[in-house]
Amino acid sequence: MSRADFHSQNLDSARAEARRLFAAKVEMQGAWLGWVASQIYALRPAAYASMVRRELQSLQENSES
């Protein structure tokens, strides 16, 4: 499977996972950063974890605007 195929097949799932992780930020407050790092670290394959990380970064940047 090409990288582009992998990306297109997993983008919706990565976005949903990023939204789930981001939603926990308010409730967890200071503990969130360590928790979210461990959640992303556990995701496989690594390419999927990177997709989730990028989507989560985008959510964070948009919330700060």
Rank of each mutant, 00 (worst) to 15 (best):
M1T: 04
M1Q: 07
S2N: 13
R3E: 14
A4C: 05
A4V: 13
A4W: 06
D5G: 03
D5H: 07
F6W: 09
F6N: 04
H7N: 05
H7M: 07
Q9D: 14
Q9C: 05
N10T: 08
N10D: 04
N10A: 04
L11C: 02
S13H: 09
S13K: 15
R15I: 04
E17P: 00
A18M: 08
A18S: 12
A18F: 06
R19S: 04
R20Y: 05
A24C: 08
A24K: 08
K25A: 10
E27V: 02
E27H: 09
M28Y: 06
W32Y: 14
W32R: 11
L33C: 01
L33F: 03
W35I: 02
W35Q: 13
A37V: 05
A37F: 01
S38A: 14
Q39N: 03
I40F: 03
I40H: 03
Y41T: 00
Y41K: 05
L43I: 05
L43F: 01
R44A: 04
A46Q: 08
A47Q: 09
A49S: 12
S50C: 09
S50W: 02
M51L: 15
V52N: 08
V52A: 11
V52S: 11
R53S: 13
R53Q: 13
R54C: 12
R54T: 14
E55D: 10
E55M: 06
L56N: 06
Q57D: 15
S58T: 11
S58G: 07
S58I: 03
L59R: 01
L59S: 02
Q60V: 07
Q60F: 01
Q60N: 05
E61T: 02
N62A: 15
